[in-house]
Structure formats: C-alpha cells, structure tokens
Simulated scan of single mutants.
Amino acid sequence: MNKNILYRAHFLLLFLSGIGLSLSMKAQEIKGIVYELESSQQLPNVVVKNLRTGKATQTDVEGNFRISGAINDLLTFTQPGYEVDTAFVYQEGVQRVYLIRDSKTIAIDEVVVSRLTDSRLAYEIEKAKSAGQVTEVSQNRGGIRLSLSRLFGGQSKMARKNLDLLLEEQNNRKIDRLFTPQMIRAIVPLTETDMALFREQFRPPLDFIETASPEDVRAYILDSYGKFKSAK
C-alpha cells in the first residue's frame, strides 16, 4: 500500500514537473509579425536576431516569426531597403514591429507613433528636438529680430507638436510597464476588453506609479474601478 502511494506521488511529481517544463519552454518563445510602417504590409524574409542569445531567424511569407527568447530580451530586425530597428520585449503576446524604409521621412500622428518601437521612438524624439532647435536658431540667425508670428510659425509649431506627441507616447509606455494587467487583475475583476479601456482611461501619472506604496496603488485602482463601473 505504501509503495502504491509512493509510486502515485512520484508519478504526480513527474507529471507536474512535465507541465512546468512545458510552460517554461512555451514562455521561452517570442512570436511576432513584422510590417512596413507606411502600408502596414507584412514583410517576409526579415532577419530577426535575439541579441542576448545570438540566435536568428527569418519572417515567413506573411511576416510571422518565432524565436527563442524571454521577457526583457532585445530583438533586432534587418531587411534590405529598410532601417534596422530594435525592439525591447517587455510583455507576453504577439510582438508587432513596423519597419521604416531607408531615408524615409515619416508623417507623425498618433497611429504612427503607437507603432514605433522604443528605440525608434527615442530616435524620433531626438530628431524632433533637433528640428525645433534648428528652426528657431535659423530664424534668429545673424541677430535679426523676427516677429512672434514667424518665431512661432508653421515649422516651429509642427516640430513642437511632433515632440509633444512623441514624448507623451514615451511617457505612457513607461507607465504601462508598471500599471500592468497582472497588477490590476489581482485587485479588481476585468475582462480583456474592459482591461484595455480601464488602463487607457485611468492611466496614472508616472511620478505616482513610480513612488506610490502598494497600498496607495491598490486604493487608486479600487477608486478608479468604482468610477469605471458607474460610467458604464
């Protein structure tokens, strides 16, 4: 009888270990799709490389890829005719990456900004900062005093507008990596659809989420959840 129990316990342990190993192996794979930014066309034959492991693969005819890796890995994406891009993997799920053609100036809007990888977003922020500085310096070159309408005219306004949009997206991404679905779901029950709406509507300020205690965060989520439910 004791041998029987031991045998069953051993079998159960092996079974659970197998499940754990299976989940661990599954978690070690990164899946994604590579698109062209302007057309949203899926790109085949893009070389995807994991900088941590050194492993590489290529996207299939529909732009899909699978590569061994984990959260916090860096992936590079290389395709002739497109700028090399780097993506930081900070959440599970299908990674969507949008490549930009070489020497292509992109038109900034909310949709485009949301598609940029973190590395590309940082690059566009620096470019927008430079554009704003160049515009204002060139307008005052030689000590010529210009009217306010020219100093704050079209080019300068556009540079500042682009920069504000890019910085807002960068700030939101920092918040979203801390204000995670896992954190929220541990406190309040939300469906996948409601979760996306809740995080968008009640995204806290970055300084709050970075410095608040667990009790403060819990109180914030509960209070926001009450407002969310009453508004539905």
Results as ranks from 00 to 15, higher is better:
124 E>K: 09
68 S>M: 09
36 E>I: 03
23 L>A: 12
209 I>T: 07
176 D>E: 13
89 V>I: 15
35 Y>C: 03
191 T>L: 01
109 D>S: 03
42 Q>E: 13
227 K>I: 01
136 E>Q: 13
107 A>V: 12
199 R>N: 09
92 E>M: 01
204 P>N: 11
117 T>W: 02
23 L>C: 11
224 S>G: 03
153 G>D: 07
212 A>P: 05
110 E>T: 09
181 P>M: 10
146 L>D: 11
98 Y>G: 00
150 R>V: 06
128 A>F: 04
49 K>F: 10
77 F>H: 02
127 K>L: 13
223 D>W: 05
201 Q>G: 01
110 E>V: 04
75 L>D: 00
10 H>N: 13
83 E>K: 11
208 F>V: 13
187 I>W: 01
231 A>R: 14
10 H>P: 01
129 K>Y: 00
72 N>E: 14
139 Q>Y: 08
134 V>S: 12
117 T>S: 15
100 I>T: 08
72 N>G: 06
21 L>S: 12
27 A>P: 01
15 F>R: 14
17 S>T: 12
53 T>F: 01
204 P>H: 07
5 I>R: 13
139 Q>D: 04
220 Y>A: 09
26 K>W: 06
71 I>C: 00
216 D>L: 10
212 A>N: 09
29 E>S: 07
139 Q>H: 12
125 I>L: 08
189 P>W: 14
122 A>H: 02
3 K>W: 09
96 R>T: 00
186 A>G: 12
45 N>I: 06
168 E>K: 15
51 L>N: 10
230 S>C: 08
102 D>Q: 12
50 N>E: 10
152 F>N: 04
146 L>E: 14
210 E>G: 05
110 E>Q: 09
79 Q>N: 08
43 L>S: 04
202 F>L: 04
89 V>N: 10
4 N>Q: 15
197 L>K: 15
220 Y>D: 08
178 L>C: 10
197 L>E: 15
136 E>N: 11
199 R>M: 14
172 N>T: 05
85 D>W: 01
164 D>W: 02
85 D>V: 09
35 Y>A: 02
169 E>L: 03
102 D>L: 11
135 T>W: 13
178 L>Y: 13
131 A>Q: 08
222 L>P: 01
172 N>S: 14
159 A>E: 02
226 G>Y: 11
146 L>S: 12
15 F>D: 13
43 L>E: 06
115 R>Q: 06
225 Y>G: 07
156 S>P: 07
84 V>C: 03
21 L>M: 15
111 V>C: 06
121 L>S: 00
171 N>M: 05
100 I>Y: 07
207 D>S: 13
178 L>M: 14
130 S>F: 02
40 S>H: 12
84 V>W: 01
96 R>I: 00
175 I>P: 01
42 Q>S: 13
72 N>L: 14
106 I>W: 07
69 G>M: 00
195 M>V: 02
143 G>N: 03
125 I>Q: 03
69 G>Q: 00
186 A>W: 08
148 L>G: 02
154 G>I: 12
130 S>Y: 05
7 Y>G: 08
9 A>F: 14
141 R>W: 12
231 A>L: 15
186 A>K: 11
194 D>P: 02
203 R>Q: 06
150 R>H: 07
138 S>G: 05
